[in-house]
């Protein structure tokens, strides 16, 4: 069996050159492409996620690792059979309409990527309709809405409402977060969950995606 330790370590250290070298080495020794991704690349990224959670790594370091991982995945992708899953699911993330706060949302996206989800980051000031379109186009399982202003958190409700109107509400889980958001508010607007921080969001997404798979 191929030893993925060095590849994983290269991801953890965000060392692009080393990731490239190790991925190519694995490809050349005919390792199953999916294993390269899951055990080598995502495996390393999981460690990064854990370390970040206990304050052992800073955000810039995690971002470097994520970039290294993604580069590795791009190298492997051509070898995958069509339709093979390289991720645990797809999360559409964005800051709701009227709100321009970027960082919190990006951190959640980053942590989700660490854990093996595909993340479609729509950016900030996203209208309900844009969320719906993105969910449809990317076959997203989870919509993650962010708001930092007490004046814009009400846009979250509109987004949930539009999902109902557009008939996609049963196909996606909707989660909300941001400084002024509470579990109570999440319940009120009919969201499926609330998380207080990026780590919580990851746990929540895992829980919801598992639930959906079990249906």
């Amino acid at each position: 069996m191929f030893d993925f330790t060095e590849l994983s370590n290269a991801v953890i250290e965000g060392d692009n050159a080393q990731v490239q070298a190790k991925v190519n080495e694995a490809i050349n020794t005919k390792v199953d492409p999916l294993e390269i991704i899951n055990q080598g690349l995502i495996g390393g990224m999981n460690v990064v996620g854990q370390r970040f959670k206990v304050n052992d790594m800073f955000v810039p370091e995690v971002l470097m690792s994520a970039r290294a991982m993604n580069m590795g995945i791009e190298l492997v992708k051509p070898l995958l059979a069509g339709g093979e899953m390289t991720n645990k699911g797809t999360v559409i993330i964005g800051t709701v309409k009227g709100d321009l706060h970027d960082i919190g949302k990006s951190l959640v996206g980053m942590m989700l990527e660490c854990t093996g989800y595909k993340v479609v980051d729509l950016g900030v000031d996203i209208a309900p309709e844009e969320f719906v379109v993105a969910a449809r186009e990317n076959n997203g399982q989870v919509l993650a809405l962010s708001a930092l202003l007490t004046t814009t958190m009400l846009s979250m409700k509109s987004t949930v409402d539009v999902c109902v109107e557009e008939g996609i509400r049963n196909n996606v889980k909707i989660i909300v977060g941001g400084a002024p958001i509470t579990q109570e508010f999440a319940d009120q607007i009919g969201a499926d969950g609330y998380a207080g921080d990026a780590a919580g969001a990851v746990e929540l997404v895992s829980k919801l995606v598992t639930e959906m798979a079990a249906r």
Binding site: F58, V59, P60, L63, D102, I103, S106
Partner: peptide, 12 residues
């Protein structure tokens, strides 16, 4: 600010 946000996230 947007550029600065990016600088912060990357400690650039």
């Amino acid at each position: 600010k947007q550029l600065h946000d990016e600088a912060v996230m990357n400690c650039d």
